[in-house]
Design a protein around this nucleic acid. Structure first.
Lengths: 313, 313
DNA sequence: GACGCTTACGTTCGTCGTAACTATT
DNA sequence: AATAGTTACGACGAACGTAAGCGTC
């Protein structure tokens, strides 16, 4: 048994049981992969993949167990590399953050500026995507940490830690009548054409729930994944907008009026997602603490190694 | 990086940083081990061991991190083997149980008989030791499960699950006056010479605590690690005995009188100890459930993969 | 017939063990 | 002088890539 073989079966499984694709991805020859897999199967005395003739068609039951373990081992192997890099130069390295637009645009800039000042030798990369993509990136190792609001409870292999709670505001063109509503109600909002986030994005779930709970059908005329797009169309008075509160800045958004709407919607929790059992570079802990000061290194370490339950704020 | 190198550093660390010993234990040559360690260090870019000249004298800080990860990987490697054996023949294999005398003699016989009937092809081996030894055996892989009562909360790498609670009885020669005490008190016990378990054994802690709590100094004239030894000497009327209740069988111990003493001592909890993250053969779950029916496969699996906290009964 | 895995084979690289060397106690 | 680790070197074996073969779709 060797680590190469584990890499092979893992990649083959990931590529839909296509050995040739896996070989390409691993920059090696297809027969080599094929042979090593057979050797591993022979050594363990089981079939990892079931075959129709020569083609791999499914993962066997023992194969599932083996793949699960193999994945953990490959992850630990990666951890070893990380340890090496950390102690070679604890200030240099790379940090890949996968996040949604709202976080990247409104929550992160300050945190990232401070981080870059403190760790000028760390290469930062920011990847945008929807919450699901963001999680997948952490799972497959193309990102170190995920930051998102929805849809990230369902991954067993991710540790999710709560960072902030936030809520929404309503924005509208400066002299729009809704800005006079005291207090603001869902019924009032439902009277106007509405522009807000795309489904499955940045807390859109909570918005839907609130209206549904009152038997209201909001007239959503436009959805976007992007607060700035929403603001642009609201400024053109094509409708009123429901935004994350943090996306409204009175200094910048002088072409928009705003009313807080925290009393109308359940608050959303932005969470950070990390790969379970990952060994993190020192500066990653530092970044996390910069984003959510209550997430100390100790806390995060405990969560990473430990329990399968997700923590509640 | 390869698994062999991890085996090497692990063994070297285990053998007090003696490369030659480690090489012997791994049935290979000393220069081979030495070289592979250096190669690994070079690849990771760190020193795992610090050296005085040529001698290894300590584990470095990154070395500690590396060794911890390596140990987990080796454990996962062992898990892969287990998966192989399970699916090659789920009824055959081996099960190594490390336990204390009291469990082996009084709690286990029935469980083991049933288990052997159900899995005649499983080679059982029973290892005795004190609670500490029993845990060490699981940690270093020479036993699959530990059964013991004391001193097993302190191992971070073990998952401890509660099985039974039990308490003690007082035994004495048939017409001994203590058998007439109604109700039995610690003061009464303290009046007679006492024979009981050795320190650090089978709940001796609870016994000490009870007497201490009442400011009593029992007159312990003889200690043993073995209930049968205690009974033998009590039968010779050399003193009265405090025993695990399960160690008294009226049908067999007709040369002894008994009074229950559960009201005098805190109850003890027998726990099963498993290596964290271990992958267990199907029949191991079956054995555990035979010993403690509330420990279903699901429960044990959750505990193994999950939380660092030990479960409470 | 195209795609995809396996078998066959020669080359290369890595690993291991012996032996000689060097440093520490 | 004895113990412990490194360097050097030669032999063996494992892994890889190319090319050919065979089974599915």
């Amino acid at each position: 048994m060797n680590l190469q073989q584990l890499r092979y079966i893992h990649e083959v499984a990931r590529r839909g049981l296509n050995v040739s694709d896996a070989a390409d991805a691993l920059f090696t020859s297809q027969p080599g992969v094929s042979k090593q897999i057979r050797l591993l199967e022979a050594e363990l005395g089981i079939e990892i993949f079931s075959r129709h003739g020569k083609r791999l068609v499914a993962v066997t039951e023992p194969g599932r167990a083996v793949l699960e373990i193999a994945e953990r081992m490959l992850c630990e192997m990666n951890n070893l590399q990380q340890v090496g890099e950390e102690f070679a130069n604890e200030h240099a390295g790379s940090l890949s953050i996968a996040t949604t637009h709202t976080q990247a645009r409104y929550a992160l800039p300050r945190v990232i500026r401070d981080f870059m000042r403190r760790y000028p030798q760390v290469k930062l990369s920011l990847h945008q995507g929807n919450p699901r993509q963001v999680c997948e990136m952490v799972l497959d190792g193309s990102a170190d940490i995920a930051l998102a609001t929805e849809a990230i409870s369902e991954y067993e292999e991710l540790v999710m830690l709560p960072c902030h709670q936030w809520n929404r505001c309503v924005v509208a063109a400066p002299r729009h009548p809704i800005l006079k509503e005291q207090p603001l109600t869902l019924e009032a909002i439902a009277r106007y054409p509405l522009i807000t986030y795309d489904d499955a994005f940045t807390g859109r779930g909570q918005i839907n729930k609130a209206f549904l709970g009152r038997g209201l059908k909001p007239n959503v005329v436009l959805t976007a994944i992007d607060s700035d797009v929403i603001k642009t169309y609201v400024a053109m008075d094509l409708g009123i907008g429901i935004l994350a509160r943090m996306a409204y800045d009175p200094a910048v958004d002088r072409d928009l009026g705003m009313i807080d709407a925290a009393h109308l919607f359940e608050s959303s929790t932005t969470r950070i997602g990390l790969r379970r059992r990952a060994w993190l570079r020192g500066y990653v802990y530092s970044f996390i603490e910069g984003f959510a000061p209550h997430l100390t290194r100790r806390m995060v370490e405990t969560a990473l190694s430990g329990s399968a339950d997700n923590y509640q704020l």
